[in-house]
């Protein structure tokens, strides 16, 4: 898909906030694709991490917000340990999640999880899932 990049379509505020929350210099990414190749969730993603990083460099917040990428990320840190530019992409994903969660928007709703499902889960699944997916 061809995207028009112009000062009008660059959401600089979003880009700045992601940088701030993640502490990562996203402009360092040189699009090698190691992250995409390493991602265990790769096949399930609307946007592979390399592509997401590129869109982020251009402040394309709509495309990033529409993608499931940050929400399917399991914070496994594989991209992070392999990034030749030393970018902690896991933290970038966290920042993208946080920008939604901090608007008091839940990705999953704890009250709607059936009790039988909760019964099966180990506590760490609940704790970590709620940390990552609820506001």
């Amino acid at each position: 898909m061809i995207r028009k990049i112009s000062p009008r379509t660059i959401n600089d505020d979003f880009r700045r906030k992601v940088k701030e929350i993640s502490g990562q210099d996203i402009q360092q990414c040189f699009q090698c694709g190691t992250c995409s190749a390493s991602c265990p969730m790769g096949r399930m993603l609307d946007l592979l991490p390399r592509k997401l990083m590129s869109l982020l460099q251009f402040g394309q917040s709509d495309a990033i917000a529409a993608a499931n990428t940050a929400w399917v990320c399991a914070s496994c840190h594989t991209c992070m340990v392999r990034c030749p530019r030393g970018i902690d992409i896991t933290k970038v994903m966290e920042a993208i999640r946080q920008l939604t969660l901090r608007q008091n928007i839940n990705r999953i709703n704890p009250s709607e999880i059936p009790a039988e499902e909760v019964n099966d889960m180990p506590q760490i699944a609940m704790v970590s899932g709620f940390r990552k997916l609820t506001s």
Partner: peptide, 23 residues
């Protein structure tokens, strides 16, 4: 051996967790 099992995505995307665990 070092690949992720899907972790907490068993809550958010259980199918994804099943797929990576199968692998």
């Amino acid at each position: 051996a070092m690949e992720c099992c899907g972790s907490y995505q068993v809550l958010g995307n259980p199918d994804a967790a099943v797929e990576v665990s199968h692998e």
